[in-house]
Amino acid sequence: MDIIYVLIPLSILLISIAVLVFFWAVKGGQFDDLDSPAHRILFDDDDEPQPAPEQTKPADKKSSDD
């Protein structure tokens, strides 16, 4: 059972790394929006191929730019 003298310090080390990674993620803004990702994953938009919207919308003047 002396392995415990290794395992516990090891787990503390791993946790410190996890906390540092978490801090880095917070700093990068990954936790700025806590609401949308939960919903976003539910919206699959590949039910059917999307029609080319630029042509179907006459109001879209920009489509003629190219």
């Binding site: 949308s36 976003r40 938009d45 920009k62």
Partner: peptide, 27 residues
């Protein structure tokens, strides 16, 4: 609701010249 964000992001992504659009639902 969250679908609003989905709608706006997808509509904008279709526009030629828009490289990315991401809407934060909290603010």
């Amino acid at each position: 609701c969250a679908a609003c964000a989905w709608l706006i992001e997808h509509r904008l992504a279709q526009l030629k010249g828009v490289t990315s659009a991401s809407l934060n639902l909290s603010n």
